[in-house]
């Protein structure tokens, strides 16, 4: 089985977000970048497929040279080969089209992407890839097992979960549940050393065009003051929630 894990390079969850150039660009200065949390779960799940079923696992990112540190980390965790598609990520559609071209070229049976990247919160790349490639699609996938050509999976639905089966080739939008937090693989020294020898291939991309453009960014408005209420005066809280906030 050939697996591709799509890795989004995103600001660390604790990062402060600022914009520059008259609020038309995200200011990456001083921002530490990490593997998108949803993709970490998918990458570890892929490693288990490698250990148990002898799958090969490649990783790919669409972006400029600054994403290579994140790809190296994925190699250190155990991926076999990394691809960087050398074009800025402009929107979900363009990224999905670029990644789909790589999938066609290399013939992956299983594409693991994340439910959503925590930077632009698109939640669209895996579904668009499934659409472009005509692959089966399972979004918000929280369990995945594969026997020959058949995937048995569980997806999250609102207020519960649903089991389902699908034939490969398959794209999933993965998240926590694929593996648990405590099972996440982190790079060790040996992995880091080995990653240096592994191929990180830079591809030119197919020149896919985006369908959207971020033209202006803004930060949330400063919020109003906190009203402190004594624990001995819960009636006041109820009164305020009813008459002031009008939420109960």
């Amino acid at each position: 089985m050939k697996i591709l894990v799509c890795i989004s390079n995103v600001p660390d969850t604790t990062a402060k977000i600022n914009f520059k150039d008259n609020d038309t660009q995200f200011d990456t200065q001083g921002v530490p970048f990490v593997i998108n949390p949803n993709d970490e779960f998918g990458l570890t799940r892929a490693m288990w497929f490698k250990e148990q079923n002898g799958a090969t696992v490649d990783v790919a990112t669409v972006g400029d040279a600054s994403v290579e540190a994140t790809l190296r980390k994925a190699l250190a965790i155990g991926a076999d080969e990394a691809y960087r598609i050398d074009t800025p990520a402009l929107d979900g559609y363009q990224v999905a089209a670029e990644l789909s071209a790589l999938v066609k070229e290399n013939g992956y049976d299983l594409v693991i992407a994340g439910r959503e990247s925590i930077d632009y919160n698109g939640g669209m790349v895996p579904g668009m890839m499934a659409g472009i490639l005509g692959y089966s699609f399972i979004h918000k996938c929280i369990e995945l097992n594969i026997d020959q050509q058949t995937a048995t999976a569980v997806r999250e639905i609102d207020g519960g979960k649903e089991s389902l089966t699908a034939q490969l080739p398959l794209v999933i939008g993965g998240q926590k549940g694929l593996v648990e937090e405590k099972d996440l693989k982190i790079p060790n020294m040996r992995g880091i050393m080995m990653a240096r020898q592994k191929p990180l291939k830079v591809l030119p991309g197919i020149g896919a065009q985006p369908l959207t453009q971020d033209i202006h960014f803004a930060k949330p408005e400063a919020r109003s003051q906190t009203t402190m209420i004594s624990k001995d005066n819960l009636d006041e809280l109820i009164e305020k929630l009813h008459t002031e906030a009008k939420v109960i």
């Binding site: 999905a96 659409g131 609102d158 939008g173 369908l211």
Partner: peptide, 23 residues
């Protein structure tokens, strides 16, 4: 923004060659 809507929208985007803007 339901789980089902989030599954459909990107596929629909490909069918219609239409931009998808979420959130």
């Amino acid at each position: 923004a339901s789980a089902n809507a989030q599954s459909i929208a990107p596929l629909l985007s490909v069918h219609l060659k239409a931009a998808f803007v979420s959130g």
